[in-house]
């Protein structure tokens, strides 16, 4: 394990940002810390980097206890959401900074900077000032700067958060490819589940200062430990007493045993997909509507339209999670997960 976090607790006044967090981050992988804003994931990353001091607990990096080490001596690379560019230095000088601090010989610095600029596709911008670069280019510069010192771990705090959607997606793919080349243990913070699912080898879901689940993207999506994780990764709707993915619901036009009866109140067509809002019998308002997604062909074959009476049931093999009820914050240790066998509609 590359990073071992044990019993980390951190509060700001009355607010508990992290509450007894334990997590191990494997060597050489790309790990995402995923969770809603204010959930404590950035604080955890900053504690690993030594930029915040935890109230309790310990951090080990590559087997060395780093809990009381200042950031200067942790040998981590840190990339900030807003680039943290040294505005008065050229791109090359920015990248060379860490090496100059370490008093490496000049030719070596030059060679390494050239290599890194090549790696992040910024060679032709070496002598520009950061203000002359676009957001995406600045972030690549920041990445090269962090990698220059050959850090044991690379930490990225919402690295694509300040970029627009298109650049964001490009950089995301590029980070994945870069990691496959460089293989440095990388941890990045994001609140975007799609980003985490696409890029990460492993995802740590953090909410309200606690870790909800750790696993591969597939594990998290297919076997969410609780309703929070299920709701946070991917779309989710409530069918009866359970949370379920909208595409895991089968629609029948005839009565079925155990199926929920309802009426289609709204139908949206988005490309090849149809999204139905089904109001269960006896429900008063749209708050109880069940969302169902299915293909257009299938919807047409059943002749579904607004006003049609339908019966909804979970599909075979669908993952469902009971809706958490009662006092907030009570987490069931073992969430009962059931796979119900429902009848599939004949096509």
């Amino acid at each position: 394990m590359s990073i071992e976090v044990r019993g980390i607790t951190k509060g700001y006044g009355d607010f508990v940002a992290l509450d007894d967090v334990n997590v191990s981050i494997p060597t050489g992988q790309l790990t995402a810390l995923l969770g809603p804003s204010g959930g404590g994931k950035s604080t955890l990353l900053r504690i690993i980097a030594g930029l915040e001091v935890a109230d309790a607990g310990s951090v080990q990096i590559e087997g060395v206890d780093a809990t009381s080490l200042p950031p200067q001596r942790r040998n981590v690379g840190f990339v900030f959401q807003h680039y943290a560019a040294f505005k008065h230095m050229t791109v090359a000088k920015n990248v060379a900074f860490g090496l100059e601090i370490r008093k490496r010989p000049k030719p070596e610095i030059k060679q390494r900077v050239d290599e890194l600029l090549e790696l992040v596709h910024l060679s032709q911008f070496a002598h520009r000032l950061p203000s002359q670069l676009s957001g995406g280019q600045r972030q690549r510069m920041a990445l090269a700067r962090a990698l220059a010192v050959e850090p044991k771990v690379l930490l990225l705090d919402e690295p694509f958060g300040a970029l627009d959607a298109k650049v964001r997606k490009e950089l995301r793919d590029w980070l994945r490819r870069l990691h496959d080349e460089v293989h440095v243990t990388t941890v990045f913070v994001t609140h975007d589940q799609e980003e985490a699912l696409e890029v990460a080898d492993e995802i740590v879901v953090i909410n309200e200062g606690r870790i909800e689940q750790v696993g591969t993207p597939e594990q998290l999506y297919d076997e969410p430990a609780n309703d929070f994780v299920m709701g946070f990764l991917g779309e989710v709707t409530t069918l009866g007493d359970h949370l379920i993915r909208p595409h895991d619901i089968t629609v029948h036009t005839t009565e079925q045993a155990g199926a929920v009866r309802g009426e289609i109140v709204r139908a949206l067509r988005i490309g090849f997909e149809v999204r139905l809002f089904v109001r269960p019998a006896g429900a008063a308002d749209e708050g109880a509507d069940v969302v169902v997604t299915l293909t257009r062909t299938f919807a047409r074959s059943l002749g579904l339209e607004v006003g049609t009476a339908v019966w909804l049931a979970p599909e075979t093999g669908a993952r469902v999670v009971p809706v958490r009820r009662g006092s907030a914050g009570v987490l069931s240790d073992e969430t009962p997960v059931s796979t119900e066998k429902g009848a599939t509609a004949a096509v």
């Binding site: 700001y12 900053r46 030594g50 930029l51 915040e52 001091v53 200042p70 950031p71």
Partner: peptide
């Protein structure tokens, strides 16, 4: 929050 950070807290 800026004041609890490492560089400016000391």
């Amino acid at each position: 929050m800026a004041d609890s950070t490492y560089t400016r807290r000391r």
